[in-house]
Computed example of a mutant assay.
Amino acid sequence: MRIISFCADSIVDAAEKGFFDWVVKQDADIICLQNLGIAEYKLRDDVYFPREYNPYFFDSADGKSNGVAIYCRQLPKAIMTGLGFMDFDMDGLYIQADFDDISIGSLLAPSVPDNDPKAQIRKNQFFEQFYNHLHKVRNKRRDFVICGNWGIAHKNIDLQDAKSNHGVSGSLNEEQQWMERLFHEEHYADAFRLVNTDADEFSWWPDGEPGKNGWRVDYQIVSERLKPRVEYGAIYKVQQFGKHAPVIMDYDYELPESAF
């Protein structure tokens, strides 16, 4: 099973830069997209609806900013939108495709513009609720892969300039500790780091210049039983489709031919 995750920061701009031309050639089973920047009903061009995939969208409340999507080669049994967090669901943060015994999610965490304290409080509240959600679902008889822009650089190795970014949202101690709790107490894992421990692997450049001030905030987080099934991981940087780069992960797992 191959899953590609990409935070587009405008799917229209990414498409114009060749994202869909590239991604349909990658033989992915699932494509998770975040921060579409446009409502689904405004996507008129066939490029956004590759015939090889069944696409599902969850638009943000304003219809233009934080929408997420998931493209499935095989039909899922069900699609879930939102997380049941009353204060966050209408932000278009999460969509999930359920198959027989595995669920794949596309996540966009709340952002904190200009280190705004109120926005940081909102982000922290979201992650506390999300932690409780992940604690509950780990007891279900299914596996989980949650892909997307988590808005957190887990460790200093995930920051190109950790010193300059000290105290910036996404690299705060409480945020990194939250992720540590998720991994050590709930036994989830950062799939990419299970197969790649290099120090120069970044997926986001806030200034839009690869090679400058890089962060790794785009993850595929897997539940415990999937840890030994992670085979390959890469961040695709040959072409630039936006400020983020696609994350490609291969798993020793085969989705069913059809859910029906």
Results as ranks from 00 to 15, higher is better:
V68S: 08
A78F: 04
L83E: 10
Q34P: 01
E16F: 03
A28C: 14
R44E: 06
V68C: 07
F57N: 00
R51T: 13
A61G: 10
K25E: 15
V12P: 00
A28D: 15
E16Y: 08
K77Y: 00
R73K: 15
I30V: 14
S10H: 09
A14V: 05
D62V: 05
I79K: 08
L43D: 01
F6K: 06
W22P: 00
W22I: 02
D59I: 06
D13H: 09
L36I: 07
D27Y: 13
R73T: 05
D59A: 11
T81N: 10
V68D: 05
A28F: 13
D27H: 15
I70V: 15
F57D: 00
Y71K: 06
T81Y: 05
R73D: 03
D29W: 03
K25Q: 15
K17C: 11
E16V: 03
D9E: 13
Y48M: 13
D21H: 14
I79Q: 06
Q74T: 11
S5N: 12
N66T: 13
L36C: 10
W22F: 15
I70H: 01
L43G: 06
F58N: 09
G63N: 14
I11K: 09
S10W: 04
L83R: 04
G82I: 01
D27V: 07
S60E: 07
C7W: 07
P76K: 08
P50F: 04
A8G: 02
A78P: 00
I31R: 01
V24A: 10
S5R: 02
F6M: 06
Q26P: 10
S60I: 06
D13W: 00
F49K: 12
N54I: 09
D13L: 10
F85N: 04
I79P: 10
S10K: 09
A28R: 12
E40G: 03
V12E: 01
L33F: 07
C7N: 14
Y48E: 02
G37L: 07
D62R: 13
K25C: 13
I4L: 14
D21S: 15
V68P: 01
R51L: 08
Y48P: 08
G84F: 09
